[in-house]
Amino acid sequence: MELHVCKRRIALIWIIGVLILCTILFLQTLANKHEGHINEVWGWILQCTLPILSLIIGVMTLNTFQADINPIQVDKFTFNLATGLSLIYILVIGLIILLQPFTGKPLWQLSADSNLYLAPFQGIISGSVGLFY
């Protein structure tokens, strides 16, 4: 599997995933759902996604004008691992937002609680995705 294909697929997963999450939060913000806690909620989502997304977009932008003369082949398992972990990570964040109405807790409180398990997870994802960029 060629490296530039892997990069594009991982980038698409991240961009689409983060876009969906941010759209939901944006609509919630417009509806004043997080009154008085907007900073906490947006701070949480950006902290969870922005480091990896910045890495992906930054490297891809940098490589835009570089000719890919000798395409590098990537181990399929490594790619699947990075893709799978990325999907699970974005899904977990999405579930926190989407299942919040059933929990009885506000999102700003859930997000603070989730830092405990999302932070180490983010470290693993960074290692896995960073390999491709």
């Binding site: 939901i24 919630q28 509806a31 004043n32 759902k33 919040q100 109405p101 506000p106």
Partner: peptide, 10 residues
């Protein structure tokens, strides 16, 4: 009810 709770809050 769900969409109401998701976007507007309880």
């Amino acid at each position: 009810d769900y969409l109401n709770a998701l976007f507007f809050g309880k």
